[in-house]
Simulated assay, not measured.
Amino acid sequence: MNTSVLLESWIWFGIAAVGFAVLFNVPKRTLLPIFLMAALGGTLKLILVQNTENVVLGTLCGAVLVGFLSIYAAHLRHSPPFVFAIPSVIPMVPGSFAYHTMKGVIKLSGHVNALEFNSLLRETVNSGLKTLFILLAISIGVFAPMLITRRNSAKEINIRIPVLKSKRKS
């Protein structure tokens, strides 16, 4: 991949994430880390998509990188990791695949030529499955590092459940 194209995509990923962060009204001190995390995660995704031709794997790796960086940034900037992670992965959302899925569903719901139907159905299902798996990769990539790096295990968390006592008549 050309270095200028990589730098340009790096900048656009960061700007898009900062735009969503401003829309979500995050603190100003979090904008620079959000820019950097989105730029690094999106660029990693693009590099892996170019080299492996697997958009789901590239998205998963980019989202995992954002997930781990958000934990580090949360400690530095004293904000929850989700403040950093969610705006940073929004530019990775598969808008094009979702658009083609919906366009195919709309065409399939109308009158379609019998010769066209099979290819249109195949393309629609393909785009829909890519959309689904990319969204799953984003959600797993963001939440898995946060679950892995939790300080308390579930066994150490005390949950008090009130016990209802029944009154028996003797």
Rank of each mutant, 00 (worst) to 15 (best):
residue 78 H to Y: 11
residue 20 F to T: 06
residue 35 F to G: 08
residue 137 A to H: 08
residue 49 V to I: 07
residue 73 A to V: 05
residue 114 A to E: 06
residue 86 I to M: 08
residue 35 F to S: 11
residue 45 K to Y: 14
residue 22 V to F: 13
residue 68 F to Q: 11
residue 44 L to W: 00
residue 117 F to C: 07
residue 74 A to F: 01
residue 27 P to M: 10
residue 63 A to E: 09
residue 80 P to D: 11
residue 106 I to R: 11
residue 139 S to W: 01
residue 42 G to M: 09
residue 25 N to W: 09
residue 48 L to I: 13
residue 114 A to N: 03
residue 125 V to Q: 05
residue 38 A to I: 06
residue 143 F to P: 01
residue 84 F to H: 14
residue 37 M to P: 03
residue 49 V to T: 03
residue 75 H to G: 09
residue 60 L to S: 02
residue 94 P to W: 01
residue 143 F to M: 07
residue 133 F to L: 12
residue 66 V to I: 15
residue 37 M to N: 10
residue 76 L to W: 06
residue 117 F to T: 03
residue 81 P to D: 08
residue 36 L to Y: 12
residue 68 F to M: 13
residue 99 Y to K: 05
residue 73 A to K: 13
residue 61 C to N: 03
residue 35 F to T: 11
residue 101 T to P: 02
residue 105 V to M: 15
residue 113 N to P: 09
residue 132 L to D: 02
residue 108 L to K: 08
residue 138 I to Y: 02
residue 88 S to T: 10
residue 128 G to C: 02
residue 127 S to G: 04
residue 61 C to D: 01
residue 109 S to E: 13
residue 115 L to G: 10
residue 69 L to N: 11
residue 97 F to R: 01
residue 70 S to M: 14
residue 101 T to D: 03
residue 81 P to G: 09
residue 131 T to S: 12
residue 52 T to L: 12
residue 112 V to R: 06
residue 125 V to C: 00
residue 119 S to L: 01
residue 137 A to D: 02
residue 128 G to M: 04
residue 110 G to Q: 11
residue 75 H to L: 13
residue 81 P to L: 03
residue 67 G to V: 15
residue 80 P to V: 08
residue 64 V to F: 15
residue 20 F to C: 10
residue 67 G to N: 07
residue 27 P to F: 10
residue 51 N to Y: 14
residue 81 P to A: 04
residue 25 N to Y: 09
residue 104 G to W: 13
residue 142 V to I: 15
residue 22 V to H: 10
residue 125 V to P: 05
residue 77 R to N: 12
residue 86 I to S: 02
residue 24 F to W: 05
residue 52 T to C: 07
residue 90 I to L: 15
residue 20 F to D: 09
residue 116 E to V: 06
residue 135 L to K: 04
residue 146 M to N: 05
residue 148 I to N: 03
residue 50 Q to A: 11
residue 146 M to K: 09
residue 31 L to K: 14
residue 97 F to Y: 03
residue 130 K to A: 06
residue 38 A to S: 09
residue 90 I to V: 15
residue 75 H to I: 04
residue 100 H to P: 00
residue 28 K to N: 04
residue 20 F to W: 05
residue 106 I to A: 13
residue 61 C to P: 01
residue 55 V to C: 00
residue 34 I to N: 10
residue 68 F to H: 13
residue 128 G to K: 01
residue 31 L to D: 09
residue 140 I to R: 01
residue 83 V to D: 00
residue 36 L to V: 14
residue 116 E to L: 15
residue 120 L to S: 02
residue 114 A to D: 03
residue 46 L to N: 04
residue 147 L to A: 14
residue 146 M to F: 09
residue 140 I to P: 03
residue 119 S to K: 01
residue 136 L to S: 12
residue 74 A to W: 08
residue 85 A to E: 05
residue 92 M to C: 09
residue 87 P to M: 13
residue 138 I to P: 07
